[in-house]
Amino acid sequence: MDIETFLRARAGVARASTLQVAGFSRTYVGKALTDGRIVRVRRGIYSMPREAGLFGLALQHNALLTCLSAAPTYRLWTLHDAGSVHLSPGHKKTPLGTLTHGRCPHPPHPWLPVAGLADVLIHSLRCLPPLESLVMLQCATQRGDVTIGFLRRKLPGNRNARARSVLDGLIPRADSILEVLANYHFRRAGLHVRRHVELPGVGEVDFLIEECLAVEVDGSTHLEPRQVKKDRKRNNATIIGGRLGLRFGYDDVVHHPERMVGEVLAVLELCRQGAFGTR
């Protein structure tokens, strides 16, 4: 494994001691620095060039990366790249073109200019559109990094009502961002939804809606030939088992949720009209 691959698996940054334990000698690290493959953020801290730019900006202004800009450090799910840099500068001004967040009352990252996870999540709730903050929180809470109760206590009063409402969209388990988003949209449409339901002959389906429609949301792995064959068998087994089935991909769930929900509602309406009844 080369040093770039190693760093990418660790949010693009690592201590010198971590690199040495992983088998990268001082000579190897020095050559990687000379070649421009990695950058020294500060003494004993090495990073990929792109990440170093963000850390360097934060260090230059004595600020902390937070919100969406800190998500890669904590390996949180995100819908989009950060775009503008999100900074918490304390009482100082931040550079033009950056997004300024409030102070960070919780301990920061132990060795990077990054806000602590609690502040990163709270800032995201107050800053980002609901779905973008929801996927970050889902990742952190289901890993056990933070609890919903803790976040609720940190968001008191009317001014935090919108932020608290996002917490209602969290679910005990989600295997992907797509499940989080689809669940949010189905619930918002007033549908009765059960998640991760085991169907005889089919296995576990992502959603069972109104007890009659099995819905699966497919990531990129479902485009692989072996998975396509498996999904085809599961689709057939769903129908043979007496239930209808729909599948939606990334583009449907992320970019066209209204269309996705509309198709689900259309099938349910046909069911109510007896369109799929025995003739």
Rank of each mutant, 00 (worst) to 15 (best):
T147K: 03
R75K: 14
T141G: 06
G102L: 02
T147H: 00
P89R: 10
V120W: 05
V135I: 08
G83K: 11
G83T: 05
L131D: 14
N62P: 00
T66H: 05
G90F: 09
K92W: 13
H91P: 01
Q60I: 06
I122T: 10
A70G: 01
Y74L: 02
V120R: 03
L112A: 11
E132Y: 10
V85S: 08
D81V: 10
G149W: 10
L57A: 09
A140L: 01
T98V: 09
Q138V: 12
T100C: 12
P113T: 00
H91Q: 13
L59D: 15
L125G: 04
H123F: 07
D81W: 13
T147S: 15
G102H: 00
K93T: 14
K92Y: 10
G97F: 06
E51S: 15
A71E: 05
G149I: 06
A52H: 14
L76A: 05
G83P: 06
S133Q: 03
P89S: 07
L134W: 03
T78A: 12
A140E: 01
L64P: 05
C127N: 14
D119N: 13
H91N: 10
L79F: 12
Q138D: 08
G116L: 06
A140F: 00
A63T: 07
L79D: 07
Q60N: 09
L137G: 03
L117A: 06
G90R: 12
E51K: 14
P108I: 02
I148P: 04
H123V: 09
L125N: 03
R126A: 08
A63R: 12
H123A: 06
Q142C: 11
L65W: 02
R126G: 01
A52W: 15
L117H: 02
L134G: 05
L96T: 14
V85I: 12
